[in-house]
Every structure is written in structure tokens, then in C-alpha cells.
Amino acid sequence: MEDVLSRKLNALADPTRRAILARLALGEATVAELGRPFAISQPAISRHLKVLEAAGLIEAGQAAQARPRRLKAGALKEPADWIAGIATLWSDSFDRLDAMLAEDIKREGE
């Protein structure tokens, strides 16, 4: 079974889904509103929304006949924290490499 972080990262891997999330960050929207900027069918938008919902990134509301979608509060924290941790590892690795290169250059100068 796929873990929650993997589902979220998989959902975020698609540019259309990232654009949908960016739109939902501004406020809730219906499927029709979310589909407007894209040259894809309404069923395709619905499939993207299902992926985002399964990943726990968005949720459907209830407003009469419409089911507007909204970004779930805090849903991006886990992927953001994971990415920040990886960035820290890379940064630390580059800092160590810089220190090693500086030491080599210092020794060559002696």
C-alpha cells in the first residue's frame, strides 16, 4: 500500500494538478471553474480532482447542487517538510564539499 507522502508527491508531480491546487489556494471553486483554464475535458478535470482528493490535498464541499472543492488546511505540510529536509541534506553536503575543497586549496598553497 502506498503511503500518504507518496500519494501526495504523486499528486503534486502533475502540472495540471499543481495549477488546480494554486487556484484552490485562492478559495474554493467548482469543477467547471477549475476546468476553465485547461484545454481538457470535464471528465479529465474530475480525474485530476479524484487524485488530489485521494491524496488528502483537497476536499469537496456541499453547496446546493454544486460540490465546490477546497484546499485542505495543512495538507501540504508533510510534503513541504520532506522537501525541506532533503534541501537541508543537500545544503549540508555542499557545505562539506566546499570545506574540503578549501582545505585542499590551502594545502596546495603551502
Rank of each mutant, 00 (worst) to 15 (best):
R69I: 09
A32R: 05
A64R: 15
R23K: 14
H48N: 13
A19L: 10
G27M: 03
G27C: 04
R69F: 12
R70D: 05
L21G: 05
A64V: 09
S6A: 02
E110F: 10
M1I: 00
A73E: 15
D104F: 04
A32H: 07
L57M: 09
I40T: 11
M100C: 14
L101S: 11
E110W: 05
E103G: 13
D14E: 07
F94D: 00
T16E: 08
R18Q: 09
A75L: 12
E78I: 12
L97G: 11
S41F: 00
G56L: 00
L97M: 13
E33Q: 11
R96Q: 07
I105Q: 15
A63T: 13
P79E: 02
S6H: 04
R67P: 00
W82N: 10
D98I: 06
R96L: 03
T88I: 14
A13M: 07
D104C: 06
A73I: 06
R47T: 04
S93W: 14
L101D: 13
L21K: 02
L49Y: 02
A22C: 02
S93M: 12
R96T: 08
V51H: 06
F94W: 13
K8C: 01
K50R: 08
T88L: 14
G109E: 15
L21M: 11
E78S: 11
T30V: 08
P37N: 08
K106E: 15
I105W: 12
E110T: 13
